[in-house]
Write a protein that binds this DNA or RNA. Structure first.
Lengths: 220, 220
DNA sequence: CGCGTGTTTGATAGCAATCAAGTTCTGTGG
DNA sequence: CCACAGAACTTGATTGCTATCAAACACGCG
């Protein structure tokens, strides 16, 4: 991980969403950091006194079982806040999916700079978003079929942009660990959606939704 | 649902935990309500301006797919707060598992009575607990086997009491919809744990953990 | 006592996991 | 710029776990 001294030299996020990124707490008072692809931002059970916001790139939060099974909690994209905990320790680890820039701040420092109330509201908003997403994720993991899981996932990613071609910041293994599937099953479902002319994959990291209504029908 | 006029006449929760229920916001300023077994407390997509706390009994939050598949988000026991939303609508419905008493309050009324800051802290605490539980639930749904799911579930329930015999407020179907299984699979796993002398079920709504280390090993 | 609901047990089917090659993509060095 | 090595992805064959379908059993209640 490296401290970003010349923040003006940084490339901006590729998603249009980041253009509209409001000058939030962290953007104002945080420190810019850069992480290489697959570099750890924080570890599970590490002390949690910092909060993070993605500037460019993407981050995953993951939890590991003793035998190596892995569950990804969520993916965070430019503008998203992550790393907030209510206990003293991180309950997931966080890693950069690709070369990623984040802004980081200490809760206490932010409170001094911007006021406790502003920080509390900021944290509450981010926590609420996490909870809503986790609850949607529960239904997906508990009750959807492999095909529905992949369809929902692609829709969710596609929803974040309005360009026709959507880039996937994560590989098949990360998709599998998010969806509670194996990498082979994800691959087969992708092929299936492609054969059905619903989604087209010009490469394995990029797709185009060809039949959105069909994809929406499949996603539930 | 009925308004509880004579609150002093109510039976108290069966769990020891409720004895230590702190005189929280809702306990002080809320209105007592009684719900019959399986009665709906609120519906999905209903407007959400009330918050709830279980006094006695138990509540489940559920989400339904168009074809009837059901996912239970969480179970709430005496002392637990539920029904908080960040958008305008409820994202799950809530139903009483058995005859249940709840205290209810409007966010705005509570803020007038106890102050905005106290309410905000109260909501933040409850949201944080919901998020932590939802994240544990993700790992269970995404990566655990049927046996591990049932073992984890029983441990989680048993953890709430220190009496040897634990009552299950929910039936097999509710367990299945929480764990992302079918009722038959839940039943088979229960039988299996019983055959292995790890857990004993004197009746289908009550169990005793006979070998906790084994149950903990199975739960992950 | 008999009915209905909820649970358990049994037989079978099917979806996704596993095991095992191939194939494509990517980055690197000649 | 091309050749190569390793990683990532896809495809195929098979297994196995859990769902489904079906029936018996147990319990609570009128």
């Amino acid at each position: 991980m490296t401290l970003e001294v010349h923040s003006s030299s940084q490339k901006f996020a590729t998603e249009p969403r980041s253009q509209a990124l409001p000058a939030g707490l962290l953007a104002q008072f945080g420190v810019r950091m850069a992480y290489a692809r697959h570099e750890e931002v924080y570890a599970q059970e590490e002390e949690a006194d910092l909060i993070y916001q993605v500037v460019s790139g993407a981050v995953r939060t993951t939890r590991l079982m003793s035998d190596g099974r892995r569950q990804i909690g969520d993916f965070y994209h430019p503008g998203d806040v992550f790393g907030i905990e209510h206990g003293p320790e991180h309950r997931f680890s966080a890693e950069a999916l690709c070369d990623t820039i984040v802004v980081v701040g200490k809760k206490k420092a932010l409170a001094l700079a911007a006021g406790q109330n502003a920080v509390d509201r900021f944290l509450a908003d981010a926590t609420a978003r996490d909870l809503d997403r986790a609850q949607d994720h529960l239904l997906l993991l508990g009750r959807k079929t492999a095909c529905e899981k992949v369809a929902s996932f692609l829709l969710g990613i596609a929803h974040r942009t309005n360009r026709p071609a959507v880039d996937l910041p994560m590989g098949r293994q990360d998709m599998a660990d998010y969806l509670g599937l194996t990498i082979e099953t994800v691959s087969r479902m992708v092929t299936q959606l492609q054969t059905a002319m619903i989604v087209e994959f010009p490469s394995c990291r990029q797709f185009i939704v060809r039949n959105r209504p069909a994809l929406e029908r499949l996603s539930d």
